[in-house]
Amino acid sequence: MIVTNKKEKMGYYLFLLPAYLIFTVFIFWPVIHSSYLSFFKYNIITITSPDFVGLKNYKFLFNDEVFWTSIKNTVIFVISTVPVKMALGIMLAMLLNRKDLRFKTFYRTCFYIPVVISMVAISIVWMLLFNPGPNGVVNILLSKFGVKPLGWIADSNLSLLTVMLLVIWKDLGYIMVIYLSGLMRIPDEIYEAVALDPVSSWQKFWYITWPLLKPTTIFILITQIIESFQVFTPIYVITEGGPGYSSTTIVNYLYQKGFREYEMGIACAVAYLLFVVLLILTMLQNKISKAEEIRYD
């Protein structure tokens, strides 16, 4: 090792300065300030400085029906989209992982393209595809099977479902790619060991592949739950939370309170409740992935 002097060590902090200055101003300070503001009434249009109100913002949320609706919608969104995405993702990965399949890169590209395209652009296309009434593309296709035109984004029973279909379709390729990398790390010898035994491919999947994929599955499950809890863009673009509040999620509610009604205190309280949930999930993931690593090695 080369001996370093004090002046040189000071230089190291200069390397860190730009990154950590930005972190401090735009992440660490806002995290603290956000919790502080959640105890204040602060409407940036009507009042100039925040008024301390204690737990009033949290009480307001607790009694606000729209807030509860947004939680209900978010939970429905998470528990419906995540398992479907994962089930379809693992099926695609199993198909693509077959040794005798050619044009693998081509197929993987087809499945992955929806992941990279802009959520806003595809959401607007989705509005056309799921246009209510007889002119909507999906309705035209359904009519060939004798199904009457559905209201989709204009129907409060179907609006959230329409967005869920979009998100499942868009994220499928991502889940598939992660599962593929998990599958590729399973050594061939494990399958060779049972090659002479009379086992079906279903048994092979259930007793060998699935247990070995457990770390991948847990990783995808928790990161996807965290991600899905924060769904905002497709709902903002397609339904704006409507009709009524039938597709309003937690982040849509936060946006509404903070940047439409300018009630910063209430919006910060929403942000904090969301943060606590996500933090618990993140810690859970760290804990599980550490335990899995030990077992795996």
């Binding site: 990154a19 950590y20 972190f23 101003v25 735009f26 992440i27 660490f28 300070w29 806002p30 995290v31 300030h33 956000s34 503001l37 940036i44 924060q230 905002f232 982040v251 936060l254 903070g258 940047f259 910063m264 919006a267 910060c268 942000a271 904090y272 969301l274 943060f275 996500l278 933090l279 993140t282």
Partner: peptide, 20 residues
Amino acid sequence: AALATLMIPIYVTAIPMFLI
């Protein structure tokens, strides 16, 4: 600290960020 930033979604910090 760098890793910790990954756990903080933008929606949590958005309001103070906007005020800054």
